[in-house]
Structures are given as C-alpha cells and as structure tokens.
Design a protein around this nucleic acid. Structure first.
Lengths: 193, 193, 193, 193
DNA sequence: TATTAAACGAGACGGTACGTCGCGTCTTGGT
DNA sequence: ACCAAGACGCGACGTACCGTCTCGTTTAATA
C-alpha cells in the first residue's frame, strides 16, 4: 500500500507545468516567457530555474509529462489495419489542437536547442520507435511483412512522411491521406511483374 | 543586351544577406540578432527592417537566396539510380556544414513563424516537389515505376524519412542509410507472393 | 511703386513657418520634429534645413516672425499708467494661449541653445528694451521718474518679476498682480521718512 | 541611536545621481542621455527608469539633491546688507560654473516639462521664498522696510531681475550690477519729493 | 523657344537614443 | 530554511528623428 507522498515540491512542479501549458496554448510558444509563467503561477522565477535549465526544457517537460501521449498499438492480428489505426491516432493527436501546435513548437525548439532535441528523442521518439518495432517484429514473424524488411528504418519510413507534411509543407493531414501513404509504402514503388 | 543595373539598394540588400549568413554560421541562428547584423554590415537597423519583417524572414532569405541549392535531378534513364544520386546530393547539402545547420534552424523557425513556413514552402519545398514529380512522371511513363504509384505522395515518401532523421532523431545520415531507405521504399513492406 | 514679388521660395518659407506654429500648438514644442513639420507642410526635409539650422531656430523664427508682437508703449503723459497698460498687454500676450506656451518653450529652448538665445535677444529682448528705455527717458525728463533712476536696469526691474513668475513659479499672472508689483517698484522698499 | 542603514538601493541611487551630474557637466544637458548615464554608472537602464520617469526628472534630482544649495540669509541686523550678501551668494552659485549651467538647463527643461517645473518649485523656489519672506518680515518689524511693503512679491521683485538677466539676456551678472539693482529697488522709481 | 541649372518632394541611409521586455542571477523580507 | 517578489546588469527589441545623401521632377532663368 505505497501511497505517493506528494510533497510540496511536487505540487509546485506540477503547478508550473500546468501553467506553462495553459500559457503556451493562449499565446503560443514564441511569446511564452519564464517571467510570464512565474507570474501566472504565483511562483518566484528562481523556483522555475531550480527545476529546469531553460524555457525549452520547461516547455518540453510540460508538454510530455501530463500523459505519455496514447500512441500505443492495437493488435488485431492484421498489421496493416493496426498500423492504420495507430497512425490515425497519431495524426489526430499531433496534427490538431490543442496538442498539435504544442508539439510543432516543441520540434521547432529542438532544432535550436540540442538539449531539448536529446530529451525529445529520449522521451518521445525512442519509446515510440520501440513500440513500433515490437509490433512490426511480431507482424514479420507472422508473415505479414516482407521478411527482409529493415526494421531499423521503420520509424523513418512510417512516420517520416507524416512529419514532413506536418512540419515542412504544413498542410492539414487527413486520415485519407495517411491511408494513401500507407498503401504506397506497403505496395512499394517498383512495378509489379 | 540587358545589363543588370545593380542599384545601390540591391548592393545593400546583398551585403545584409551575406552578413547574416556569416554571422549565423559563426554564432548560430539562436544568437543571431538584427542588431548584430546591422552592426557587422555597417548598416542602420531600419535599413534591415525596411526589407524584412523579422529575423526569421531575413534569415530565410539569406539562406535561400544565394543559390537555388543545386538539387536538380540527373536523368540517366535509370530512375532508381537517379533518385539515389539526387538524394545523396540532398543529404550532403542539407545534412552537413555549412548549409546543414542553417537549414535545420530554418525549419525550426518555420515551426514558430507561419510567414517563414509559407515562404519556405514557396521557395524551397514546392519547386523541389515539382522537379521530383517531373522526374517520376517520366519514369512512370517508361514503366520504371508502378503505374498506380501516387505522385502526390512523392515528396512525403521520398523526402519524409530523410527529414525525420535529420530533425527528430538528429542522427547523422549516411549515403548507405539513404540507400537502405530507398530500397525499402521501392520494394514495399508487403511480403512478395 | 515697389511691389513685393513674393517668390515661390518666400511662399514656401512662410508655409513652413505656419505649419511649425500649427504643429507646435497642437503637440507642443517638445514633441515637435522637423520630420513632422516637413510631412505636414508637404515639403522635403532638405527644404527646411536649407533655411534653418535647427529645430530651435525654426521654431524661434516661426514664433517671432508673424508679427512683431505688439508690445509698444502708449504715451498718455502718465508714465506709471502707460507702463501699467503696456505690461498688461505683455502679460496678456506672453502669459496666455496661444502665444504664451510658445513663448515659454522658446525661452526654455534658449537655455540649451546659445544660437537661439542670441537671436531671441536680438529680435525680442533688445527691441523691447529700446522701447522701454525710450519711454522711461521721456518720463524722466518730465520729472515723473527719480532723476537718478538707472535706465540700464529698466528691463530687469520692470520685466524680471514678470518673467520670474511666468517661468519659475509658473503661476498665472493677473493684472492685479502686475499692478501690485508696479506699485512696489515705484514706491521702493525703503521706509519713507 | 539611529544609524542610517544605507541600503544597496540607496547607494545605487546616489551613484546614478553622481554620474548624471558628472556627465552633464562634461557634455551638457542637451547631449545627456539616460543610456549614457546608465553606461557610465555601470547600471541597467531599467534601474534608472525605476527611479525617475524622465531625463528631466533625473537631472533635476541630481542637481538639487547633493546639497540644498547654501542660500541662507545672514542676519547682521542690517537687512539691506544681508540681502546684498545673500544675492551675491546666489549670483555666485547660479551664475557661474559648475552650478550655473546646470541650473540654467534645469530651468530650461522646466519650460517643457510641467512635472519638472512643479518639482523645481517645490524643492527650490518655495523653500527659498520662505527664507526670504522670513528675513524680510523680521526687517519690517524692525522698521528697516516700508511697513506696507508687499511680502508676497518679495521673490519676484528681488530675484526676478536676476533671473531675467541670467536667462533672457544671458549677460554675465556681477556683484556691482546686483548692487545697482538692489539700490534701485530700495529707492523706488518714483521721484523723491 | 529650348536648354540648363537650381530647387524641390520624396524618402533611403548610418546613426543615436528611446522606452520596453525578458534573460538568468542576486537580495530581501515574510511565513 | 525556503520561497514570492522583484531588483539588478545586460542585451536586444522595434520605433522615432537626426542630419546627410541620392533620386527623378518641376520650375525659372539663360542662351
């Protein structure tokens, strides 16, 4: 019966994260400031700097802490269908408010700040990759995937197109679009004999 | 016999762009400031603000102006080989100093600044897509591509994995890695009958 | 039959002076700018700089040109009454809008700008002093003034108190107040035997 | 046993005042800038703006703080002699470097800035007037002054001429000139019977 | 009358300073 | 002893004018 003792420090940490998210959603990451978060949270700036080294780190923690965003894989036995379902979820979460813009800013920040990039990788990309690889491994064992398919490339190939659209062309991504991408990836570009 | 009249204004614009690139390479985009560019270029701040609305816009223009980065497609008749060559070039340009870090920052900035995102699209993504689609169209006509292959997806599928690696996982991208991705894309994930 | 030929240059000069006065009355001397005058007058900045070396000089000219402010002395034969009348006029002109604030700013500017001070002296103070001395000389000859009264001091003594009130204490100056000052100056501080 | 605790804030305030005076004496009030004071004092601009609302207010405080300029009245029993002495002191202080130019600029600034005018009055003109009136009251009681002499006018009449000369004609003021003015004020302009 | 030089409007330009904002560090005072 | 509150040095922001400097375009006086 171990209850989590919820220290005062924990409460404050949580409050700061919550305020950060609120503010970021209201005014955007670019206009977010530690000064503003401290004021809104009723907290001294020192209390923030004691916990996070930079605005980027605070933001990343605020965005990734609340929930490990639910991007787990279903397993219905049909890998193509499961991938489809999962990527639809991903698109819904990452491509739409309220989470979408936060996530977009987070990746933007990672381009300027290596520490943020590293932590983003550790806390988001790698776990996600692990899940993907696990699901694909199973699929391959069941013969639903080409046996020579290179699992190291899984994330790049499956998620890369999605990110490209979200971040470079910045067009809205629909389920239908995702389906077309998935279909193309499965079929391959090479003409069938 | 059209001579380019090279007005004084043009010269200054060029000088500012050049200085911006220099400074960005020395200290990085994050520490770049309009004040700093103005000082180094021996130019009043207003002269910069008269031309570009923000640091991001200036930086984008400085990065994209010098040369339309040479990412044209060769055409040897073998589309797979040509794609390989072109993507190798892209990786060499976008993934390595001096251009790589600049480009990375540029995409990062686009996540915070819609105007930069739009111009990045207009001046970089769309022209590149047009070239890619043109090359693939030809290949499809010659039967080197599955006839049902969806060309609208071309950029996402071909370039997406590359961007994902450069920007999310931020691992170095080798020619060998690109080759494996390309091979997978061509073959498809589906097991061969 | 000399008509004044009113060249275009003269017209422009006049237009700039007029605009300067207008603007000064609207926004105050402190916020007045040559840039603003040029824009309002529909005139290039050069055209102003060609005529006046500084904002102060322009302002002085604009304030003092329109009319030699009518501060002439009446001569009814009674010097005390005439001084009274004249100083009432002076107070009405210098102590009240629209001219009062302009004049106040002008003297303020003269404290920072020697050229303005010199011209203010030449065009305002000295002529005024000449008139005063002339009137007092006549009065002394007619025995209405102590024969040993030192005319060099006339301006300081007669006008000084007025300026002090207008510029240092900046209280409103009434005719009644002026009368009391004049009476005191005439009577002297020394007790009568 | 009250010791003055000399907080850090007090020290900084004093340092800024001192620097302001220094700079003003070196380059003049017109070229003085808050930026310059901050740089010289090794202080952030905000630290100045937190204390004074404008360059004028800072300057006034810097000029008037160091010492209540010693313009007290002696009391030898002879009011005429005492006034003479005091006004000589005033002329020496206000009409000569280093204090003279500062004071002149201060009054100039008061013409543009009502807040400065008000504080100048409060901290300089009114206290000075109080002293003058006190001394004259005593003199009147002792019969050295015309019993009907209007003490409300004292400052205007005694100091006005001095200010007029210092600020409008801007001629140097000598002790001898002051003496002549004083003599005239005592005697009055009216011819003796 | 046609030519030409000057004056002109417009406004770009290198500067300086403005007053504001937020950074990350350091003090202070209250609980 | 910790913490909110916020002062502090600093650096950059974006703006406003300064006084100088091209630009074409009138305008008027000369050839």
């Amino acid at each position: 019966m171990t209850d989590t003792p919820r220290t005062r420090a924990d409460d404050r940490t949580e409050a700061i994260r919550r305020t950060t998210l609120e503010l970021a959603q209201e005014i955007g990451y670019a206009k977010l400031s530690i000064e503003g978060v401290a004021a809104r949270a009723g907290v001294g700036k020192h209390t923030i700097y004691r916990r996070w080294p930079s605005k980027g780190a605070l933001f990343l923690d605020a965005v990734l802490s609340p929930q490990q965003p639910d991007l787990d894989y279903p397993d219905t036995g049909d890998v193509m269908a499961d991938l489809r379902t999962q990527i639809h979820h991903a698109v819904d979460l990452l491509g739409r408010p309220p989470f979408g813009p936060l996530f977009q800013s987070l990746i933007g920040e990672a381009q300027h700040n290596p520490a943020v990039a590293a932590e983003l990788n550790e806390r988001f990309a790698k776990p996600q990759e692990a899940k993907t690889v696990a699901r694909l491994t199973k699929a391959r064992e069941q013969g639903q995937l080409a046996p020579e398919f290179d699992l190291d490339l899984a994330m790049s190939i499956l998620t890369g197109p999605l990110f490209f659209t979200l971040m470079v062309t910045q067009e809205p991504v629909t389920h239908e679009y995702v389906d077309r991408v998935l279909e193309a990836l499965f079929a391959g570009m090479r003409p069938r004999p």
